[in-house]
Design a protein around this nucleic acid. Structure first.
Lengths: 226, 226
DNA sequence: TCCTGTCGTGATGATTTCATAAGGACCCCT
DNA sequence: AGGGGTCCTTATGAAATCATCACGACAGGA
């Protein structure tokens, strides 16, 4: 994932610096604005801003106002920085379309956690679903399997079957169970078709193919040797 | 696996509908409650609820309170729906015995993914079926037998037979009974075949083989010496 | 073409049978 | 009572039989 671009809007340079330092440390790209109008301008011209951190208290155009304006043309996630005692403003904030708020003073942990959470919610970053097993890595999101980092080409069914094995590692699986889970429940074909798929997966995975164990008279089991 | 039953608790009908639609699409059975007390009642009376999705903000009895009450008599997995900015409550939530939380607003994918993950955590692991007897351990799920922690390779029939013995430890079993239980009822071969299997199991189990006692003129009995 | 599923074959391992040895129970005889 | 014989049961090892699996090849379909 490439670095995400975060716009920090605050009239106090000191505050911007604090926030920037935390974010830069977390590999984000930070753009700064010292007032609402400038922020509006930047968001408008740079369509690639991924998140806006907006201070409430600013001269000329305050945070709420700025937020309202941004929402007229953009759905970029916005986090508001509110000073203490402004909790009553929360509801207003949510109505205006902010996605989260952080009360000052805040800890760096809170700041980064909230940003991460919001970015995840918004861009669904955490849906990346990776399962590792020994030298094997399965990325369910991108449908990619690697052995020692090298990509292995699997067909759709092979991928499904492998996922099922890995998700049930250590469990002895009968052919019937496998058929019912990986194939549609209305599939009544030959259970031997599993053998064929297992064979192909094993050969494609190379040495990792041995992770799929045959349990004689029973079925298969996925297990990583120690 | 049959359809799992999920209880959705939220005072807003609109919210319940959103969640319900996603879950029904995923083949879950959805039960609804519009407040904490109702939820409590449903969980108490229907022991077959497999998961509870609980909104935090509810009139009368809120989510935390409801969770605490449910935990007094049930271990059913609970996912909390928290509104924005309630992240600080997280820790409290986990103390109260919730299993996961999802911040609003959430994507359907997140919701379903978390539910799936939690159900797997909760019920898959419970499927692990381990029987211990002296220095012997039988893992029925992964079809593994160990003596003093060392794996012993048993064939399918041997495994079945050993399980039968262990599950009936202390009970004298006639050959006929064993045949009828471990072999298919339509097997009419020689009962001597049991002897052969017992012999193989005994030798494979080493010293633990002595757990299988011969009862002269009768059959066998599994018993761990003190 | 590539994916998926089916089939036949030989190899492998599991199961059963069989022959024989070993062991226990019982009885008779001293 | 105890030794020895006999009968019946169980243990053992080997051989025969049987079932399952891996593999290659192929067919139908997207």
């Amino acid at each position: 994932m490439d670095s995400l671009r975060i716009l920090v809007v605050d009239d106090e340079a000191r505050m911007r610096k604090i926030v920037r330092d935390f974010l830069v440390a977390k590999q984000y790209i930070v753009i700064e604005a010292s007032n609402g109008e400038e922020a509006l301008d930047i968001v408008y011209k740079n369509k690639n801003i991924d998140l806006v951190i907006l201070d409430v208290m600013m001269p000329k155009m305050d945070g709420w106002e700025c937020c309202k304006e941004i929402r007229k043309f953009s759905k970029v996630p916005i986090i508001m920085l509110t000073a203490k005692g402004e909790e009553s403003d929360e509801l207003q904030g949510f109505d205006l379309g902010i996605d989260d708020y952080i009360s000052k003073p805040f800890s760096p942990k809170i700041l980064v956690a909230r940003i991460d959470a919001l970015l995840h919610r918004t861009y669904k970053l955490d849906e990346v679903d990776i399962i590792k097993a020994g030298r094997l890595e399965i990325n369910k999101t991108s449908h990619i399997v690697t052995v020692d980092g090298k990509t292995v080409e699997l067909s759709y069914k092979e991928f499904e079957l492998l996922c099922y094995f890995v998700e049930n590692k250590g469990i002895a699986l009968s052919r019937e169970k496998i058929l019912n889970s990986v194939w549609n429940y209305d599939y009544f074909g030959d259970a031997r078709t599993i053998d064929t798929h297992v064979k192909k997966i094993r050969s494609k995975l190379g040495e990792c193919g041995e992770y799929i164990k045959t349990i004689w008279g029973m079925g298969y089991k996925f297990e990583v040797d120690e």
